[in-house]
Nucleic acid binder design. Structure first.
Lengths: 226, 226
DNA sequence: TGTTCTTCCCTTGAAATTGAACTTAAGAAA
DNA sequence: TTTCTTAAGTTCAATTTCAAGGGAAGAACA
Protein backbone atom coordinates (compact mmCIF):
# COMPACT_ATOMS: atom_id res chain seq x y z
CA UNK A 1 0.00 0.00 0.00
CA UNK A 2 1.34 3.42 -1.00
CA UNK A 3 0.05 6.64 0.52
CA UNK A 4 0.31 9.86 -1.44
CA UNK A 5 -0.27 13.31 0.02
CA UNK A 6 -0.68 16.04 -2.57
CA UNK A 7 -3.08 18.96 -2.82
CA UNK A 8 -2.94 19.49 -6.58
CA UNK A 9 -5.81 17.46 -8.02
CA UNK A 10 -4.21 16.89 -11.39
CA UNK A 11 -0.91 15.65 -10.07
CA UNK A 12 -2.66 13.52 -7.48
CA UNK A 13 -4.78 11.77 -10.04
CA UNK A 14 -1.93 11.39 -12.48
CA UNK A 15 0.48 9.86 -10.01
CA UNK A 16 -2.15 7.62 -8.45
CA UNK A 17 -3.09 6.39 -11.88
CA UNK A 18 0.50 5.70 -12.86
CA UNK A 19 1.26 3.80 -9.67
CA UNK A 20 -1.97 1.86 -9.80
CA UNK A 21 -1.17 0.84 -13.35
CA UNK A 22 2.17 -0.44 -12.05
CA UNK A 23 0.27 -2.72 -9.72
CA UNK A 24 0.55 -0.77 -6.49
CA UNK A 25 -2.39 -0.15 -4.22
CA UNK A 26 -2.55 3.61 -3.71
CA UNK A 27 -4.48 5.81 -1.34
CA UNK A 28 -4.17 9.53 -2.01
CA UNK A 29 -4.93 12.42 0.30
CA UNK A 30 -5.57 16.01 -0.62
CA UNK A 31 -5.04 17.23 2.92
CA UNK A 32 -2.69 16.26 5.73
CA UNK A 33 -5.58 15.78 8.16
CA UNK A 34 -6.99 12.99 5.99
CA UNK A 35 -3.56 11.40 5.83
CA UNK A 36 -3.12 11.49 9.60
CA UNK A 37 -6.46 9.84 10.06
CA UNK A 38 -5.51 7.07 7.66
CA UNK A 39 -2.07 6.40 9.08
CA UNK A 40 -3.62 5.81 12.48
CA UNK A 41 -5.40 2.83 11.03
CA UNK A 42 -2.83 1.33 8.74
CA UNK A 43 0.78 1.96 7.87
CA UNK A 44 1.62 2.09 4.17
CA UNK A 45 4.72 0.50 2.72
CA UNK A 46 5.81 3.78 1.23
CA UNK A 47 4.78 7.40 1.45
CA UNK A 48 4.94 10.01 -1.28
CA UNK A 49 4.82 13.41 0.30
CA UNK A 50 4.48 16.78 -1.34
CA UNK A 51 6.17 19.66 0.43
CA UNK A 52 3.78 22.51 -0.27
CA UNK A 53 0.51 21.54 1.34
CA UNK A 54 -2.44 23.27 2.94
CA UNK A 55 -2.80 22.95 6.72
CA UNK A 56 0.66 21.60 7.33
CA UNK A 57 4.01 21.68 5.60
CA UNK A 58 5.32 18.39 4.16
CA UNK A 59 8.59 18.83 6.01
CA UNK A 60 6.69 19.16 9.26
CA UNK A 61 4.85 15.92 8.51
CA UNK A 62 8.18 14.29 7.70
CA UNK A 63 9.68 15.40 10.99
CA UNK A 64 6.73 14.14 12.99
CA UNK A 65 6.81 10.77 11.25
CA UNK A 66 10.50 10.35 11.92
CA UNK A 67 9.99 11.17 15.58
CA UNK A 68 7.38 8.47 16.08
CA UNK A 69 8.85 5.00 16.58
CA UNK A 70 6.00 3.48 14.60
CA UNK A 71 6.87 5.41 11.45
CA UNK A 72 10.56 5.99 12.05
CA UNK A 73 11.51 3.63 9.25
CA UNK A 74 8.69 4.23 6.85
CA UNK A 75 10.17 4.78 3.38
CA UNK A 76 9.36 8.35 2.39
CA UNK A 77 9.86 10.10 -0.92
CA UNK A 78 9.50 13.87 -1.03
CA UNK A 79 8.00 15.49 -4.04
CA UNK A 80 8.07 19.16 -4.83
CA UNK A 81 7.79 22.03 -7.18
CA UNK A 82 10.63 23.87 -5.55
CA UNK A 83 13.68 22.65 -7.35
CA UNK A 84 16.32 24.43 -5.34
CA UNK A 85 19.20 22.42 -3.99
CA UNK A 86 18.55 23.80 -0.53
CA UNK A 87 15.05 22.29 -0.44
CA UNK A 88 16.25 18.93 -1.57
CA UNK A 89 18.94 18.84 1.05
CA UNK A 90 16.55 19.87 3.80
CA UNK A 91 14.13 17.11 2.89
CA UNK A 92 16.80 14.45 2.68
CA UNK A 93 18.47 15.51 5.89
CA UNK A 94 15.22 15.52 7.79
CA UNK A 95 14.99 11.84 7.00
CA UNK A 96 13.42 11.47 3.57
CA UNK A 97 14.78 8.56 1.57
CA UNK A 98 14.46 10.11 -1.84
CA UNK A 99 13.51 13.39 -3.35
CA UNK A 100 12.11 14.10 -6.76
CA UNK A 101 11.58 17.58 -8.16
CA UNK A 102 8.62 18.59 -10.28
CA UNK A 103 8.19 18.40 -13.12
CA UNK A 104 9.05 14.71 -13.13
CA UNK A 105 8.06 11.96 -15.51
CA UNK A 106 5.83 9.17 -14.37
CA UNK A 107 8.36 6.67 -15.59
CA UNK A 108 11.09 8.11 -13.43
CA UNK A 109 8.73 8.31 -10.49
CA UNK A 110 7.69 4.69 -10.70
CA UNK A 111 11.29 3.64 -11.19
CA UNK A 112 12.28 5.53 -8.04
CA UNK A 113 9.39 3.98 -6.15
CA UNK A 114 10.50 0.53 -7.28
CA UNK A 115 14.09 1.28 -6.31
CA UNK A 116 13.11 2.56 -2.88
CA UNK A 117 10.84 -0.38 -2.17
CA UNK A 118 13.55 -2.75 -3.36
CA UNK A 119 16.09 -1.07 -1.12
CA UNK A 120 13.71 -1.37 1.80
CA UNK A 121 13.13 -4.97 0.88
CA UNK A 122 9.41 -4.63 0.93
CA UNK A 123 8.20 -6.73 -1.89
CA UNK A 124 4.68 -6.44 -3.07
CA UNK A 125 2.30 -8.81 -1.37
CA UNK A 126 2.76 -12.28 -2.62
CA UNK A 127 -0.06 -14.56 -3.65
CA UNK A 128 0.10 -16.75 -0.64
CA UNK A 129 2.15 -18.81 1.73
CA UNK A 130 3.02 -22.43 2.19
CA UNK A 131 4.23 -24.19 5.28
CA UNK A 132 4.58 -27.92 4.94
CA UNK A 133 1.23 -28.89 3.44
CA UNK A 134 -0.61 -25.91 4.84
CA UNK A 135 -1.46 -23.55 2.01
CA UNK A 136 -2.83 -20.06 2.11
CA UNK A 137 -3.89 -18.45 -1.14
CA UNK A 138 -4.28 -14.72 -0.52
CA UNK A 139 -5.77 -14.20 -3.97
CA UNK A 140 -8.55 -16.70 -3.49
CA UNK A 141 -8.69 -16.21 0.26
CA UNK A 142 -8.52 -19.92 0.84
CA UNK A 143 -6.68 -22.08 3.31
CA UNK A 144 -6.01 -25.72 2.61
CA UNK A 145 -4.48 -28.43 4.74
CA UNK A 146 -3.32 -31.50 2.85
CA UNK A 147 -5.39 -30.34 -0.10
CA UNK A 148 -8.69 -30.04 1.72
CA UNK A 149 -10.09 -26.59 2.13
CA UNK A 150 -10.60 -25.14 5.54
CA UNK A 151 -13.09 -22.49 6.46
CA UNK A 152 -11.70 -19.65 8.54
CA UNK A 153 -13.56 -16.60 9.75
CA UNK A 154 -12.31 -13.18 8.73
CA UNK A 155 -10.34 -12.51 11.90
CA UNK A 156 -8.90 -15.99 11.97
CA UNK A 157 -7.79 -15.65 8.39
CA UNK A 158 -6.29 -12.20 8.87
CA UNK A 159 -4.52 -13.38 11.98
CA UNK A 160 -3.02 -16.32 10.13
CA UNK A 161 -1.89 -14.23 7.17
CA UNK A 162 -0.37 -11.63 9.46
CA UNK A 163 1.63 -14.28 11.24
CA UNK A 164 2.68 -15.92 7.99
CA UNK A 165 3.79 -12.64 6.45
CA UNK A 166 6.29 -12.24 9.24
CA UNK A 167 7.96 -15.41 7.95
CA UNK A 168 8.54 -16.92 11.34
CA UNK A 169 9.50 -13.72 13.12
CA UNK A 170 7.64 -13.01 16.30
CA UNK A 171 4.68 -10.69 15.94
CA UNK A 172 3.86 -8.81 19.10
CA UNK A 173 0.41 -8.87 20.64
CA UNK A 174 0.28 -5.17 20.07
CA UNK A 175 1.08 -5.48 16.38
CA UNK A 176 -1.43 -8.27 15.96
CA UNK A 177 -4.12 -6.27 17.64
CA UNK A 178 -3.43 -3.18 15.60
CA UNK A 179 -3.07 -5.07 12.32
CA UNK A 180 -6.00 -7.40 12.65
CA UNK A 181 -8.31 -5.31 14.75
CA UNK A 182 -7.56 -1.92 13.28
CA UNK A 183 -6.93 0.92 15.67
CA UNK A 184 -4.94 0.38 18.75
CA UNK A 185 -6.60 -1.98 21.05
CA UNK A 186 -5.59 -2.07 24.60
CA UNK A 187 -4.83 -5.41 26.12
CA UNK A 188 -7.70 -7.73 25.38
CA UNK A 189 -8.22 -11.46 25.63
CA UNK A 190 -10.00 -11.58 22.31
CA UNK A 191 -6.69 -12.21 20.64
CA UNK A 192 -6.08 -15.30 22.75
CA UNK A 193 -9.53 -16.60 21.96
CA UNK A 194 -9.00 -16.19 18.24
CA UNK A 195 -5.58 -17.78 18.39
CA UNK A 196 -7.17 -20.70 20.13
CA UNK A 197 -9.90 -21.11 17.54
CA UNK A 198 -7.35 -20.81 14.78
CA UNK A 199 -5.21 -23.48 16.36
CA UNK A 200 -8.16 -25.80 16.66
CA UNK A 201 -9.24 -25.26 13.07
CA UNK A 202 -5.71 -25.79 11.79
CA UNK A 203 -5.78 -29.22 13.37
CA UNK A 204 -2.40 -30.87 13.19
CA UNK A 205 -0.91 -27.56 12.11
CA UNK A 206 -2.33 -25.79 15.13
CA UNK A 207 0.98 -26.16 16.88
CA UNK A 208 2.62 -24.14 14.13
CA UNK A 209 1.36 -21.10 15.98
CA UNK A 210 3.77 -20.75 18.83
CA UNK A 211 3.33 -18.57 21.86
CA UNK A 212 6.27 -16.41 22.78
CA UNK A 213 5.41 -15.41 26.28
CA UNK A 214 5.52 -11.71 27.02
CA UNK A 215 6.03 -10.92 23.38
CA UNK A 216 3.50 -12.37 21.00
CA UNK A 217 3.09 -15.25 18.61
CA UNK A 218 5.03 -16.65 15.69
CA UNK A 219 4.79 -19.32 13.06
CA UNK A 220 7.19 -22.17 13.57
CA UNK A 221 8.33 -23.96 10.47
CA UNK A 222 9.53 -22.89 7.09
CA UNK A 223 7.24 -20.27 5.57
CA UNK A 224 7.49 -19.96 1.80
CA UNK A 225 6.02 -17.44 -0.56
CA UNK A 226 4.13 -18.68 -3.52
CA UNK B 1 34.62 3.91 2.61
CA UNK B 2 33.09 5.28 -0.58
CA UNK B 3 34.29 4.28 -4.03
CA UNK B 4 33.83 6.66 -6.93
CA UNK B 5 34.30 5.74 -10.58
CA UNK B 6 34.49 8.71 -12.92
CA UNK B 7 36.74 9.48 -15.86
CA UNK B 8 36.43 13.26 -15.84
CA UNK B 9 39.32 14.53 -13.74
CA UNK B 10 37.60 17.71 -12.63
CA UNK B 11 34.42 16.08 -11.46
CA UNK B 12 36.38 13.29 -9.79
CA UNK B 13 38.47 15.69 -7.78
CA UNK B 14 35.56 17.92 -6.94
CA UNK B 15 33.31 15.13 -5.70
CA UNK B 16 36.09 13.39 -3.81
CA UNK B 17 36.97 16.64 -2.15
CA UNK B 18 33.37 17.35 -1.18
CA UNK B 19 32.81 13.90 0.26
CA UNK B 20 36.11 13.91 2.10
CA UNK B 21 35.21 17.22 3.65
CA UNK B 22 31.99 15.61 4.83
CA UNK B 23 34.05 13.09 6.70
CA UNK B 24 33.84 10.14 4.33
CA UNK B 25 36.85 8.15 3.25
CA UNK B 26 36.87 8.18 -0.54
CA UNK B 27 38.78 6.23 -3.13
CA UNK B 28 38.30 7.40 -6.70
CA UNK B 29 39.01 5.56 -9.92
CA UNK B 30 39.44 7.02 -13.37
CA UNK B 31 38.99 3.66 -15.07
CA UNK B 32 36.82 0.61 -14.42
CA UNK B 33 39.83 -1.70 -14.41
CA UNK B 34 41.28 0.11 -11.40
CA UNK B 35 37.93 -0.11 -9.68
CA UNK B 36 37.63 -3.87 -10.28
CA UNK B 37 41.07 -4.38 -8.82
CA UNK B 38 40.13 -2.42 -5.70
CA UNK B 39 36.81 -4.09 -5.12
CA UNK B 40 38.52 -7.46 -5.05
CA UNK B 41 40.39 -6.31 -1.99
CA UNK B 42 37.75 -4.43 -0.08
CA UNK B 43 34.08 -3.68 -0.42
CA UNK B 44 33.08 -0.04 0.02
CA UNK B 45 30.00 1.01 1.94
CA UNK B 46 28.71 2.90 -1.05
CA UNK B 47 29.58 3.25 -4.72
CA UNK B 48 29.20 6.31 -6.89
CA UNK B 49 29.22 5.23 -10.49
CA UNK B 50 29.35 7.34 -13.60
CA UNK B 51 27.60 5.92 -16.65
CA UNK B 52 29.82 7.13 -19.45
CA UNK B 53 33.19 5.56 -18.88
CA UNK B 54 36.12 4.35 -20.95
CA UNK B 55 36.65 0.59 -21.18
CA UNK B 56 33.28 -0.33 -19.80
CA UNK B 57 29.86 1.22 -19.49
CA UNK B 58 28.65 2.12 -15.99
CA UNK B 59 25.44 0.19 -16.53
CA UNK B 60 27.44 -2.89 -17.39
CA UNK B 61 29.41 -2.51 -14.16
CA UNK B 62 26.13 -2.11 -12.29
CA UNK B 63 24.71 -5.27 -13.80
CA UNK B 64 27.80 -7.28 -12.97
CA UNK B 65 27.81 -6.05 -9.39
CA UNK B 66 24.16 -6.93 -8.92
CA UNK B 67 24.79 -10.42 -10.26
CA UNK B 68 27.52 -11.15 -7.78
CA UNK B 69 26.20 -12.22 -4.37
CA UNK B 70 29.05 -10.37 -2.70
CA UNK B 71 27.99 -7.02 -4.11
CA UNK B 72 24.32 -7.69 -4.65
CA UNK B 73 23.32 -5.33 -1.87
CA UNK B 74 26.04 -2.74 -2.20
CA UNK B 75 24.40 0.70 -2.18
CA UNK B 76 25.02 2.23 -5.59
CA UNK B 77 24.30 5.72 -6.83
CA UNK B 78 24.47 6.38 -10.55
CA UNK B 79 25.78 9.66 -11.79
CA UNK B 80 25.48 10.92 -15.29
CA UNK B 81 25.52 13.68 -17.82
CA UNK B 82 22.67 12.17 -19.73
CA UNK B 83 19.62 13.65 -18.14
CA UNK B 84 16.97 11.78 -20.06
CA UNK B 85 14.29 10.01 -18.13
CA UNK B 86 15.01 6.83 -20.00
CA UNK B 87 18.56 6.67 -18.68
CA UNK B 88 17.48 7.26 -15.13
CA UNK B 89 14.91 4.53 -15.33
CA UNK B 90 17.36 2.10 -16.85
CA UNK B 91 19.86 2.74 -14.08
CA UNK B 92 17.32 2.44 -11.31
CA UNK B 93 15.75 -0.68 -12.76
CA UNK B 94 19.06 -2.37 -13.19
CA UNK B 95 19.43 -2.14 -9.46
CA UNK B 96 20.87 1.26 -8.66
CA UNK B 97 19.59 2.74 -5.44
CA UNK B 98 19.67 6.34 -6.50
CA UNK B 99 20.42 8.39 -9.56
CA UNK B 100 21.63 11.94 -9.84
CA UNK B 101 21.92 13.84 -13.12
CA UNK B 102 24.75 16.19 -13.95
CA UNK B 103 25.08 19.00 -13.38
CA UNK B 104 24.42 18.45 -9.70
CA UNK B 105 25.41 20.46 -6.67
CA UNK B 106 27.82 19.06 -4.15
CA UNK B 107 25.36 19.80 -1.39
CA UNK B 108 22.65 17.72 -3.00
CA UNK B 109 25.11 14.95 -3.74
CA UNK B 110 26.32 14.70 -0.17
CA UNK B 111 22.75 14.86 1.10
CA UNK B 112 21.78 11.97 -1.15
CA UNK B 113 24.82 10.02 -0.02
CA UNK B 114 23.85 10.58 3.60
CA UNK B 115 20.26 9.57 2.92
CA UNK B 116 21.30 6.40 1.11
CA UNK B 117 23.76 5.36 3.79
CA UNK B 118 21.17 6.06 6.45
CA UNK B 119 18.55 3.93 4.72
CA UNK B 120 20.96 1.05 4.22
CA UNK B 121 22.02 1.27 7.82
CA UNK B 122 18.43 0.82 8.91
CA UNK B 123 17.74 -2.17 6.73
CA UNK B 124 20.87 -3.90 7.82
CA UNK B 125 20.13 -3.38 11.48
CA UNK B 126 21.05 -6.36 13.46
CA UNK B 127 18.85 -9.45 13.37
CA UNK B 128 20.82 -11.30 15.94
CA UNK B 129 24.15 -12.24 17.34
CA UNK B 130 26.64 -15.03 16.96
CA UNK B 131 29.37 -16.11 19.30
CA UNK B 132 31.18 -19.22 18.23
CA UNK B 133 28.30 -21.60 17.49
CA UNK B 134 25.88 -19.86 19.80
CA UNK B 135 23.26 -18.07 17.73
CA UNK B 136 20.58 -15.65 18.76
CA UNK B 137 17.90 -14.65 16.27
CA UNK B 138 16.17 -11.55 17.57
CA UNK B 139 13.50 -11.74 14.87
CA UNK B 140 12.38 -15.23 15.72
CA UNK B 141 13.37 -14.92 19.35
CA UNK B 142 15.29 -18.13 19.18
CA UNK B 143 18.60 -19.27 20.58
CA UNK B 144 20.54 -22.14 19.10
CA UNK B 145 23.68 -23.88 20.26
CA UNK B 146 25.39 -25.97 17.61
CA UNK B 147 22.23 -25.79 15.56
CA UNK B 148 19.87 -27.15 18.20
CA UNK B 149 17.30 -24.80 19.55
CA UNK B 150 17.31 -23.88 23.17
CA UNK B 151 14.31 -22.75 25.13
CA UNK B 152 14.87 -19.63 27.19
CA UNK B 153 12.30 -17.84 29.30
CA UNK B 154 11.56 -14.21 28.61
CA UNK B 155 13.91 -12.82 31.25
CA UNK B 156 16.67 -15.25 30.38
CA UNK B 157 16.38 -14.31 26.75
CA UNK B 158 16.30 -10.59 27.41
CA UNK B 159 19.25 -10.89 29.72
CA UNK B 160 21.26 -12.72 27.09
CA UNK B 161 20.41 -10.25 24.35
CA UNK B 162 21.26 -7.32 26.59
CA UNK B 163 24.64 -8.80 27.35
CA UNK B 164 25.27 -9.64 23.70
CA UNK B 165 24.32 -6.20 22.52
CA UNK B 166 27.10 -4.78 24.64
CA UNK B 167 29.51 -6.78 22.46
CA UNK B 168 31.65 -7.98 25.30
CA UNK B 169 31.62 -4.80 27.34
CA UNK B 170 30.69 -5.14 30.97
CA UNK B 171 27.06 -4.40 31.74
CA UNK B 172 26.48 -3.22 35.27
CA UNK B 173 24.03 -4.93 37.59
CA UNK B 174 22.13 -1.71 37.68
CA UNK B 175 21.88 -1.48 33.89
CA UNK B 176 20.82 -5.09 33.62
CA UNK B 177 18.17 -4.65 36.24
CA UNK B 178 16.80 -1.54 34.65
CA UNK B 179 16.98 -2.91 31.10
CA UNK B 180 15.57 -6.35 31.73
CA UNK B 181 13.33 -5.64 34.69
CA UNK B 182 12.00 -2.27 33.67
CA UNK B 183 12.33 0.75 35.89
CA UNK B 184 14.80 0.81 38.63
CA UNK B 185 14.85 -2.23 40.70
CA UNK B 186 16.33 -2.17 44.12
CA UNK B 187 19.21 -4.50 44.68
CA UNK B 188 17.93 -8.03 44.50
CA UNK B 189 19.35 -11.48 44.05
CA UNK B 190 16.94 -12.20 41.26
CA UNK B 191 19.49 -11.12 38.70
CA UNK B 192 22.01 -13.64 40.02
CA UNK B 193 19.44 -16.38 39.93
CA UNK B 194 18.60 -15.67 36.32
CA UNK B 195 22.22 -15.49 35.34
CA UNK B 196 22.67 -18.87 36.89
CA UNK B 197 19.75 -20.43 35.03
CA UNK B 198 20.98 -18.88 31.83
CA UNK B 199 24.44 -20.31 32.36
CA UNK B 200 23.01 -23.74 32.96
CA UNK B 201 20.79 -23.63 29.89
CA UNK B 202 23.62 -22.39 27.71
CA UNK B 203 25.53 -25.54 28.61
CA UNK B 204 29.05 -25.41 27.33
CA UNK B 205 28.56 -21.75 26.53
CA UNK B 206 27.49 -20.98 30.07
CA UNK B 207 30.99 -19.85 30.85
CA UNK B 208 30.67 -17.16 28.20
CA UNK B 209 28.84 -15.14 30.81
CA UNK B 210 31.57 -13.82 33.01
CA UNK B 211 31.12 -12.24 36.39
CA UNK B 212 32.89 -8.95 36.93
CA UNK B 213 32.82 -8.63 40.67
CA UNK B 214 31.38 -5.45 42.06
CA UNK B 215 30.41 -4.30 38.59
CA UNK B 216 28.24 -6.66 36.64
CA UNK B 217 28.48 -9.28 33.92
CA UNK B 218 29.89 -9.49 30.43
CA UNK B 219 30.07 -11.85 27.49
CA UNK B 220 33.48 -13.29 26.88
CA UNK B 221 34.29 -14.20 23.29
CA UNK B 222 33.85 -12.60 19.94
CA UNK B 223 30.31 -11.26 19.50
CA UNK B 224 29.25 -10.75 15.90
CA UNK B 225 26.17 -9.16 14.44
CA UNK B 226 24.24 -11.05 11.88
C1' DT C 1 56.76 -13.80 54.95
C1' DG C 2 53.23 -16.82 55.50
C1' DT C 3 48.90 -18.11 57.97
C1' DT C 4 44.41 -17.35 59.57
C1' DC C 5 40.36 -14.42 59.94
C1' DT C 6 36.89 -11.38 58.25
C1' DT C 7 34.11 -9.49 55.00
C1' DC C 8 31.80 -8.93 50.95
C1' DC C 9 29.84 -10.68 46.89
C1' DC C 10 28.29 -14.08 44.22
C1' DT C 11 26.42 -18.74 43.73
C1' DT C 12 23.23 -22.45 44.80
C1' DG C 13 19.11 -24.92 45.76
C1' DA C 14 14.57 -25.08 47.25
C1' DA C 15 10.26 -23.11 48.35
C1' DA C 16 6.73 -19.59 47.69
C1' DT C 17 4.39 -16.55 44.81
C1' DT C 18 2.87 -14.45 40.71
C1' DG C 19 1.11 -13.74 36.39
C1' DA C 20 0.54 -14.54 31.36
C1' DA C 21 -1.79 -17.36 28.55
C1' DC C 22 -5.35 -20.85 28.19
C1' DT C 23 -10.05 -22.39 28.64
C1' DT C 24 -14.76 -22.11 28.89
C1' DA C 25 -19.12 -20.26 28.54
C1' DA C 26 -22.40 -16.80 27.82
C1' DG C 27 -24.00 -12.66 25.80
C1' DA C 28 -23.55 -9.09 21.89
C1' DA C 29 -23.05 -8.01 17.29
C1' DA C 30 -23.15 -8.77 12.46
C1' DT D 1 -27.36 -18.28 12.04
C1' DT D 2 -22.28 -17.42 12.66
C1' DT D 3 -18.82 -14.62 14.46
C1' DC D 4 -16.87 -11.78 17.84
C1' DT D 5 -16.15 -9.97 22.50
C1' DT D 6 -16.13 -10.15 27.36
C1' DA D 7 -15.62 -12.03 31.78
C1' DA D 8 -14.22 -15.38 35.08
C1' DG D 9 -11.81 -19.23 36.55
C1' DT D 10 -7.74 -22.35 35.80
C1' DT D 11 -3.21 -23.78 35.03
C1' DC D 12 1.50 -24.16 35.13
C1' DA D 13 5.78 -22.25 34.12
C1' DA D 14 8.29 -18.18 35.25
C1' DT D 15 9.83 -15.38 38.61
C1' DT D 16 11.04 -13.98 43.05
C1' DT D 17 12.43 -14.71 47.68
C1' DC D 18 14.96 -16.80 51.18
C1' DA D 19 18.77 -18.85 53.39
C1' DA D 20 22.83 -21.27 53.31
C1' DG D 21 27.23 -22.23 50.81
C1' DG D 22 31.62 -20.81 48.37
C1' DG D 23 35.66 -18.14 47.45
C1' DA D 24 38.52 -14.23 46.67
C1' DA D 25 40.77 -9.99 48.66
C1' DG D 26 42.47 -7.73 52.19
C1' DA D 27 43.36 -7.25 57.35
C1' DA D 28 45.31 -8.91 61.37
C1' DC D 29 48.61 -11.40 63.39
C1' DA D 30 52.52 -14.40 64.44
Amino acid sequence: MIYFVEDDDNIRKLVSYALTKEGYAVLDFARPSLFWAAIEKELPELLLLDIMLPEEDGLSILTKLRDDPKTKRLPIMMLTAKGSEYDKVTGLDLGADDYIAKPFGMVELTARVRALLRRCEISRECNGYTVDSLNVDTQKHTVTVDGTELYLSFKEYTLLVTLLSAKGAVVSRETLLSTVWGEYYEESRTLDVHIRKLRIKLGKYGSLIQTVKNVGYKIGGDVRDR
